[in-house]
Write a protein that binds this DNA or RNA. Structure first.
Length: 804
DNA sequence: GTAGGGTTAG
C-alpha cells in the first residue's frame, strides 16, 4: 500500500515539485502545509480537528493527495486521479479531507462523490464532519438532505454523535428536522438517546422558541428516568424567558437553584429577561442576590443590561449597574461611558452627564470627540454649553478644539440654535457679532487656532436655509470663498432649492450659471429644483424648454413635478393643455407614469367627457401601461356617475382578472352607482361581500347606502343599516349624520310625523344625529332652519335625553 | 445628501 501511494503521489506535479524525492513521513506534511499557505491559502492540515490526531501517516498522506487534486479547479467526479485513490477511501480519510478543505462546496462535492464510490459508505463521523461544515456555511438545504441521508442509511450512532448532529441542525434553525431525526433514530433503535442527546435537542428547540416541544421532551426525559442536569434546565429556562412566561421561568430557576446548579450563565439569562420585560427592579434585585451566591455577572452581561436600561430611559438603574460594575472591579470602557453619557443627555440629566465626564477624565480615559459631541448638542439645547466648555476646555489641545469647533456648530444647528451658530461662525471669521454667548467668547479668543473648512460653512448655511433665512445663507455662501473654503455642489443645490421654493426663479438661474462657470456640474437635483418651480408656475412652455436642456445632461425630470403640473392644469380647467404637455414630454423621450396619466384622465373626465377619459385609458393600456387600482377607480367612478354601471362592473371584473385587488373606494363608487341605478340589492350584496375582507366597509360605504335606501323610500332599512354600522364599530361622521337626517326627511319619516316611538332605539338615533348636527358649526344653521320649519323635532328641549 | 405625485359620500 505504501508503494502504491508513493507512486500516486509522485504523479502529482505540484507535490512532486514541492516535495522532491519525498518519503511518506511527517516531512511531507510540513512541506505540504507550506505549499498551501503560500499558494492556496489553504488551512493547514491536521491541526484543528481532534480526529486528525489519530491519523496515521498513511492516512495523512492519502488525505493530502485527495486535497491536492480537489483544489485544482474544476472538480470532476470522473477525474482518473481521484478514481485511482478510491481503494484508499476510508472514513478517517474522508473526515480529514472534508475538515481540511477551505471551501464547503468542494468539501460537499467530495463528500457526495465519496458516497457514490463502490465499497465506501459514510459513517456517522463523516456525516457529522460534513454536517458541521454545512451548518457553519449555513447551507440549510444541503444539511436537510444530509440529515435525511443519515436516517435512510441506518448508519449506527452513539448518543454523543446524535447530539452533535442535532446541534448542527439546531444551529441553523432546522429544528423540525432535528426533532424528526431524533424520533426516527430513536424509534428505529439506531440509537438510544441519553441525557446529552436530549440536552442537545432541548437547546435546539429552545432556540426556536418551541415551548410545547421543550415541555414534551423534558417530560419524556423524566419518564425515561434520564438524569437532568444544568444543561437540561438551562434551555428550558431560556425558552420560558424568551416567551415571557414569567412564572414558569421562575419555577425552573428555582429548581436550578435548589439543585445547586446556579451559575453566571443562568443568572444572566434571567437578569437579561427581567430587563427585557421592563422588570428593572427585579433585575436589580436578582443581581443583588447573585452577590450573596457569590456569582458575578460578566462584563458582557453588564454591558447588555446597561444598554437595555439606557434604551428604556431607566437611567437610575443604569447608573446603579454602572456603579455596581465598577465596585466589582470592572473597568468601564469608553463605549460604556459613551452609552451612559448619551443616555443622561437624552434624559436631560446634564449635571450627572457632566460629572460622569469628569470621572472619565479622572480615570485617564481620553477626551472622546463622540462623547463631547453628544454633550455639546445637549448642553446647547439647555443653553449651558459654556459650563461644559469650562469643564473641558483646558483638557483640549488646539487640534481637539479645532475638531470640536465643527461639532459645536453642528450641535448648535441641530438643536435649533442657528443664531448662536451663525454668531460663532461670524466671530471665528473675525466679524463682529451681536451675540454675547459664552461659547462664542471661548472660540473667539482662540480664533487663530481654528481653521474653518467647507463643513463649518455647510452646517450653518444649511441651518439658515432650514430656518428660512435664505438671504443670510446666500451672504455666507458668498463669504466662504474668502476663507479658502470651496463652494460645493451640495451648497449650490440647497441654495437653488431654497430659491425655487420661494419662486425666486431668476436667482436660481443665476446660481446655476455660476456653478457651471466654476466647473461644478449640476445634478439631477439641481435641474429638478428649477423644473419643479416652472411646473408650480404652470409654465408649460418654460417647463418643456427646460426639460429639453435637462435631456442634454441626461437628467430625467422628476415625474412628481410633471404630475403636479398636470393636476394643477386640470384643476384650472386646462385638461387639454395638460394632455398636450404629456404628448410633448413623450416626444422628448420622457415618459410619464400611470399616476401622471391618471391625473390627466381624471381631468379630462371632469372637463370634457367620460369617453375622452376612457379613450386615454385605453390608449395608455395599448402603450403597455398597467393601470393600477386608482386608475381603475377613476374610470369606474366616471362610469358609475354617468349611470353606466354595467360598464363599470365590466372594468371591475377586468381588474380582478389582472390580479388587482379592488379597494374600498372601488366598491364605494360601485355601491353608489347601483344605488343611483335603482339596484339597491346589488349594492347590499356588495356590502355583505366586503365583510371579512381586507376591504372592510367604511363610513362612506354606509353613508352611501343610507342615502340610497332613503332615496328609495326605505327609511327602516336605512336605520337598520345605521345600527349595523355602529355594531361594526364604524363611527358616523358629520356627512353620515347629514345623509341620515336628510334622507329621512326626504322620505317624510321625520317631518311626516312618522317618527318612531321616543322609547324606540331608532328614535334615539335620530335625536342623536340632530344633536350632533346642531353642535357642528358647519351644519347647525341648516338644522336650525329645519327645526324652525318644523320638519325635525327640537331635541334641545328634551332634557331627559339618555346617553346612547 | 435626494420625493412622492393620481381616486370616495352630502
Amino acid at each position: 500500500m505504501v508503494m502504491a501511494l508513493s507512486t500516486i503521489i509522485k504523479s502529482h506535479q505540484i507535490l512532486y515539485k514541492s516535495t522532491k524525492a519525498i518519503k511518506l513521513n511527517s516531512i511531507f506534511i510540513v512541506s505540504y502545509r507550506n505549499l498551501f499557505f503560500s499558494s492556496y491559502q489553504q488551512r493547514p492540515i491536521c491541526t484543528k480537528h481532534q480526529n486528525d490526531n489519530f491519523l496515521s501517516s498513511d492516512q495523512i498522506n492519502i488525505s493530502n493527495a485527495f486535497i491536492s487534486i480537489l483544489i485544482r479547479q474544476p472538480f470532476s467526479p470522473n477525474n482518473p486521479e481521484l478514481q485511482n485513490l478510491v481503494p484508499l477511501l476510508t472514513h478517517k480519510v474522508v473526515e480529514a479531507v472534508v475538515n481540511n478543505l477551505r471551501s464547503w462546496r468542494i468539501a460537499h462535492l467530495f463528500f457526495t462523490w465519496a458516497s457514490n464510490q463502490r465499497g465506501y459508505k459514510h459513517d456517522i463521523y463523516t456525516y457529522n464532519a460534513m454536517a458541521s461544515i454545512l451548518s457553519r456555511a449555513r447551507q440549510n438545504a444541503l444539511l436537510k438532505a444530509l440529515a435525511l441521508d443519515v436516517v435512510n442509511s441506518h448508519c449506527s450512532m452513539n448518543p454523543g454523535a446524535l447530539g452533535f448532529l442535532i446541534r448542527c441542525l439546531g444551529s441553523v434553525g432546522l429544528v423540525d428536522e432535528a426533532n424528526n431525526l431524533f424520533d426516527q433514530v430513536k424509534r428505529s433503535g439506531i440509537c438510544i438517546p441519553n441525557s446529552y442527546s436530549y440536552n442537545c435537542l432541548l437547546e435546539a428547540l429552545s432556540k426556536s422558541g418551541l415551548i410545547d416541544l421543550v415541555e414534551i421532551r423534558l417530560k419524556e426525559m423524566r419518564s425515561l428516568g434520564l438524569e437532568l442536569d444544568k444543561y437540561t434546565l438551562t434551555p428550558v429556562l431560556q425558552v420560558y424567558c424568551n416567551a415571557g412566561k414569567f412564572d414558569k421561568a421562575l419555577s425552573v430557576f428555582n429548581e436550578i437553584f435548589e439543585r445547586g446548579w446556579l451559575d453566571e450563565h443562568v443568572f444572566s439569562i434571567l437578569v437579561v429577561s427581567f430587563s427585557k420585560w421592563g422588570e428593572v427592579d427585579k433585575a436589580i434585585e436578582l443581581i443583588d442576590s447573585m452577590e450573596e451566591c457569590n456569582v458575578r455577572l460578566n462584563e458582557k452581561t453588564f454591558f447588555v443590561l446597561i444598554h437595555g436600561f439606557v434604551r428604556v430611559s431607566r437611567m437610575d438603574k443604569a447608573i446603579c449597574l454602572f456603579d455596581k460594575m465598577r465596585q466589582l472591579g470592572f473597568f468601564p470602557s469608553v463605549s460604556l461611558f459613551d452609552v451612559m453619557i448619551g443616555g443622561l443627555c437624552k434624559c436631560n440629566d446634564l449635571e450627572k452627564a457632566l460629572s460622569l465626564y469628569s470621572e472619565m477624565k479622572e480615570l485617564g480615559i481620553g477626551t472622546d470627540i463622540g462623547i463631547l459631541t453628544k454633550l455639546i448638542s445637549s448642553f446647547s439645547k439647555g443653553g449651558e454649553l459654556d459650563r461644559l466648555l469650562e469643564e473641558c476646555w483646558e483638557d483640549m489641545n488646539s487640534q481637539t478644539k479645532n475638531l470640536l469647533c465643527n461639532s459645536v456648530l453642528e450641535g448648535l444647528v441641530r438643536s435649533g440654535s442657528i443664531d448662536i451658530a451663525y454668531d460663532l461662525l461670524q466671530a471665528i471669521m473675525g466679524y463682529s457679532s451681536n451675540g454675547d454667548s459664552v461659547i462664542v467668547k471661548y472660540f473667539r479668543d482662540e480664533k487663530e487656532i481654528i481653521t474653518l473648512n467647507t463643513n463649518s460653512f455647510t452646517f450653518v448655511i444649511n441651518g439658515l436655509l432650514d430656518a428660512g433665512k435664505l438671504d443670510l445663507a446666500l451672504t455666507l455662501f458668498r463669504e466662504m470663498v474668502q476663507f479658502g473654503c470651496n463652494q460645493t455642489v451640495l451648497l449650490y443645490n440647497n441654495l437653488i432649492d431654497g430659491l425655487c421654493k420661494l419662486d425666486r426663479l431668476e436667482e436660481s438661474y443665476e446660481l446655476l450659471r455660476e456653478m457651471k462657470e466654476v466647473g461644478l456640474e449640476p445634478t439631477q437635483f439641481t435641474h429638478n429644483c428649477i423644473f419643479g418651480c416652472l411646473c408650480r408656475r404652470e409654465d408649460v412652455e418654460g417647463a418643456l424648454d427646460f426639460l429639453r436642456k435637462m435631456r442634454f445632461y441626461g437628467h430625467e425630470p422628476w415625474v412628481k413635478h410633471s404630475t403636479l403640473l398636470v393636476k394643477d392644469l386640470c384643476k384650472h380647467g386646462k385638461a387639454v393643455e395638460a394632455c398636450k404637455f404629456l404628448t410633448d414630454m413623450v416626444q422628448e423621450g420622457f415618459l410619464p407614469d400611470i399616476i401622471t396619466y391618471s391625473a390627466a384622465m381624471n381631468g379630462l373626465i371632469k372637463i370634457k367627457s367620460v369617453d375622452e377619459g376612457l379613450e386615454l385609458f385605453q390608449l395608455i393600456c395599448t402603450r403597455g401601461y398597467c393601470p393600477d387600482v386608482i386608475s381603475y377607480n377613476i374610470v369606474i367612478k366616471a362610469l358609475c356617475k354617468s349611470q353606466r354601471v354595467a360598464e363599470a362592473e365590466h372594468l371591475l371584473n377586468e381588474m380582478m382578472l389582472k390580479g388587482l385587488v379592488p379597494s374600498v373606494v372601488t366598491y364605494n363608487y360601485l355601491i353608489d352607482g347601483w344605488c343611483k341605478n335603482g339596484e339597491i340589492d346589488q349594492a347590499m350584496l356588495c356590502l355583505s361581500k366586503m365583510f371579512g375582507k381586507e376591504r372592510e366597509a367604511n363610513v362612506i360605504t354606509y353613508a352611501t347606502l343610507v342615502d340610497g335606501l332613503c332615496n328609495l323610500g326605505r327609511p327602516d332599512d336605512a336605520l337598520k343599516l345605521w345600527n349595523e354600522m355602529g355594531r361594526k364599530g364604524c363611527a358616523p361622521n358629520r356627512i353620515a349624520y347629514h345623509a341620515l337626517i336628510n334622507g329621512l326627511c326626504k322620505c317624510e319619516m321625520v317631518d311626516g310625523g312618522n317618527l318612531p316611538d321616543p322609547l324606540d332605539k331608532n328614535f334615539l338615533i335620530i335625536r342623536d344625529a340632530i344633536c350632533k348636527l346642531s353642535e357642528d358649526a358647519r351644519t347647525s344653521s341648516s338644522i336650525k332652519d329645519l327645526i324652525a320649519e318644523g320638519r325635525i323635532p327640537d331635541v334641545s328641549l328634551d332634557m331627559h335625553r339618555p346617553t346612547i
